[in-house]
Write a protein that binds this DNA or RNA. Structure first.
Lengths: 208, 208
DNA sequence: CAAAACATACAGACCACCCGGTTTGTGAGT
DNA sequence: ACTCACAAACCGGGTGGTCTGTATGTTTTG
């Protein structure tokens, strides 16, 4: 029952090595020997912390989910103009995707999505992740609508799904060209998409 | 020296079986025995037509590329209002993705993108496919701008990349929920996104 | 010293690819 | 028209290698 703190370090090392390997070559092509070598531990140590390869992937996804979730929470709590908060959130997520291997591996594992077929309950399919992303966006849009920031007569759910689709598109395209997650690229996307949400005249009011 | 026509049939059968298998379980998890069983031929026949598993995947991608390319060409040739042509093209692509296993497998193979690392020349990375998609959209937007359909002062390249990103997003999200490629879903996306391209008043002029 | 944490060796399975052999079609020669 | 020779097309078992997961032994830590 005595947890050792060294264990935490190796667990983290394994998680990091796994994330970087998954991000590099994908789930199926990643081998556990390779991961354990990168982590500087043995396969036995790996299996001590994660009972299976799938559990390892789940661990990576969970860690990525925690990071993304906390970013979303911060955006919900920030009390600025809601659309501005939305823009800021997108930049923060892009930064995570650029710089954080765990996040990158997490969404990448969601993309391929070919483990054992997720069944009905499906608590961990990446579909749920995107749905909750849409929900966050929808709440921010609600605040924006109250403040009169949005074009009148806009369907907030449709707009939220639009932004979700855009985010998913960036994720997909970034797999081939990481520059699409750079600040300028995100800014450009916003510049093109913002008129769908906000009156053309007011677009200049936001710092993209 | 003389091609037999039975060969064409088996080659096609193998291609179809491979597409459906790849679409189901992904490239890595697909086994050649399984594919040949589904095609109703032997492993030897498979290897007669495709020298390697990678070649098989390339064949599927090429076939999918041909279908998508011809749809794009049709859209470029159709002489209607350019924005309407764009909408119609999107519906056609969505239909292909819904109903055509080969197309579905083709983009799916592009998504995972974890074969032997594509090098510099990279003629077959899916990045190139998306780029040429952007180019098609850009040309259609050019026609639309000439006809005065677009909002003034729009950056056509940025708009084309926006639509490409949207398409990529739909592809990614459709992997989890095929309904997103249904006509109503596509229509909804257009309804939300069109104001970014066209003056709000004129949106009603298009049949989404 | 006991349990936790880690290492090593091995078992069992799978898979891509190879290869010798068989069948099927085709065109030339008669 | 009929055979024959040859190549295209197809078959299916074998092979080498790799991979996940387990079983068992060793060190580290509270």
């Amino acid at each position: 029952m005595v947890k050792q703190e060294r264990a935490g370090r190796t667990r983290q090392a394994v998680l990091l090595a796994a994330a970087s390997t998954f991000a590099d070559v994908g789930f199926e092509s990643a081998s556990l020997v390779d991961i354990s070598r990168r982590a500087g531990v043995s396969k036995g140590a790996l299996y001590f912390h994660f009972v299976s390869k799938q559990a390892l992937a789940d661990g990576v996804r969970a860690a990525a989910g925690r990071e993304i979730g906390s970013a979303a929470l911060r955006a919900l709590r920030a009390g600025g103009p809601a659309v501005q908060d939305l823009v800021d959130l997108s930049h923060e997520l892009a930064r995570l995707l650029r710089e954080d291997v765990v996040v990158r591996a997490g969404v990448q594992l969601g993309r391929a999505g070919h483990g054992p077929r997720r069944e009905h309950g499906d608590p961990s399919g990446s579909g749920a992740a995107w749905r909750s992303f849409t929900a966050v966006v929808h709440r921010l849009l609600g605040r924006a609508a109250e403040a009169g920031e949005l074009r009148p007569g806009i369907d907030r759910w449709a707009a939220a799904e639009l932004l979700t689709t855009l985010a998913a598109g960036l994720v997909l395209l970034a797999a081939e060209d990481t520059a699409r997650l750079g600040p300028e690229a995100v800014r450009g996307t916003w510049a093109a998409a913002l008129p769908a949400l906000v009156d053309a005249g007011r677009c200049a009011a936001y710092r993209l």
